[in-house]
């Protein structure tokens, strides 16, 4: 009798524990990543916003307090808009924003023009070859980004492989000046980000219903026409996803313009870096980041929209 009672009790306890886990246990799974990313990814933007209203000061950390408690325990808020005014008055910021967008745009276009036929050729090869090609395209993505940019320098610098070969062949008589030009930055971005363009394109092209193309050709469409009318529109999600994956990080690129670009390739990432490490003006750097983020909100929203749509399917 007693035994059954205890058994019953433990059973009930276990059931209530299980009920608790069923009801709240999911929070043990949800909370750790949610809290971590909230604190270390989202909250930082709040601090950046706060510090963008501060003023540079000679102390550690090098900025003034935005709010402080007055002696009579009232919160005293000092918001300085001078950093944002400075962004609009100093030409360098507007110029570098525009330059970054232009550079990212043309690099993305180049990536698309090279990446699309590559992805299309991959999607049309046999299943076994597709697996190998995937690996071949992904492998550079795993190798160091910094080292790949440095490797590209070995090809395009004045005494690099490209110039040596062209000189040897007699195609040119003086080395081509590619390093430290805007073209070198384009080349660097295309070289580094090409896999990001190819993979989403390949993913949509591979799933494409081939019977639609056959239908188009049965109805008398020429291959080129069928491509424009059927394949291209259907692969638009891949085109947009790939372009966003290249365009957004490319705008903020620092390493490529710093290593391959000339002194005039003032991309916003480079300006930010210098503001921080050379001028030590943290509040202005924070204001530039916030303004930059506002500018990026549109493209990032497009990216999120497509990613979420992709995952829901």
């Amino acid at each position: 009798m007693v035994a059954t009672e205890t058994l019953d009790k433990t059973h009930r306890q276990r059931r209530s524990l299980r009920g608790w886990v069923d009801r709240h246990g999911r929070w043990l799974i949800i909370l750790p990543p949610l809290l971590f990313l909230f604190v270390f990814f989202l909250i930082p933007f709040g601090f950046a916003l706060k510090i963008s209203f501060a003023e540079a000061a000679l102390r550690i950390p090098p900025f003034s307090d935005v709010y402080s408690a007055t002696p009579d325990h009232k919160l005293h808020l000092v918001l300085s808009l001078s950093n944002y005014k400075y962004l609009l008055t100093d030409e360098v910021y507007v110029v570098s924003y525009l330059y970054s967008i232009r550079t990212a745009f043309f690099s993305t276009l180049l990536c698309l023009m090279i990446g699309y036929p590559m992805a299309y050729a991959m999607a049309r090869s046999s299943k076994a070859t597709q697996g190998i090609l995937m690996l071949v395209i992904i492998l550079p993505f795993w190798t160091s980004f910094l080292l790949r940019v440095y490797a590209l320098e070995g090809i395009i610098r004045d005494n690099g492989l490209l110039n040596a070969t062209l000189l040897w062949l007699g195609v040119i008589h003086e080395p081509l000046k590619i390093m430290r030009t805007t073209f070198a930055v384009y080349l660097g971005i295309v070289y580094s980000y090409l896999p990001f363009m190819i993979l989403p394109l390949y993913a949509t092209l591979e799933k494409l219903d081939h019977t639609l193309l056959e239908a188009a050709s049965d109805l008398g469409s020429r291959p080129w026409r069928a491509f424009l009318d059927v394949t291209l529109p259907l692969s638009m999600p891949g085109v947009i996803a790939g372009s966003m994956l290249v365009f957004i990080p490319a705008i903020g690129e620092y390493v490529i313009p710093a290593l391959l670009g000339g002194p005039d390739s003032l991309m916003i990432g480079r300006v930010l870096w210098d503001e921080f490490f050379a001028n030590h003006d943290w509040p202005v750097a924070a204001a530039v980041s916030i303004a930059f983020l506002v500018l990026l909100a549109g493209p990032i929203a497009v990216h999120q929209h497509f990613r979420v749509g992709q995952l829901e399917h």
Binding site: F40, A48, E253, L272, A286, L293, L296
Partner: peptide
């Protein structure tokens, strides 16, 4: 995945 590293870096430092 798409946030420019330089922004993530600066904001995290400020945090």
């Amino acid at each position: 995945l798409v946030m420019p590293e330089i922004i993530t870096g600066i904001t995290q430092l400020l945090l």
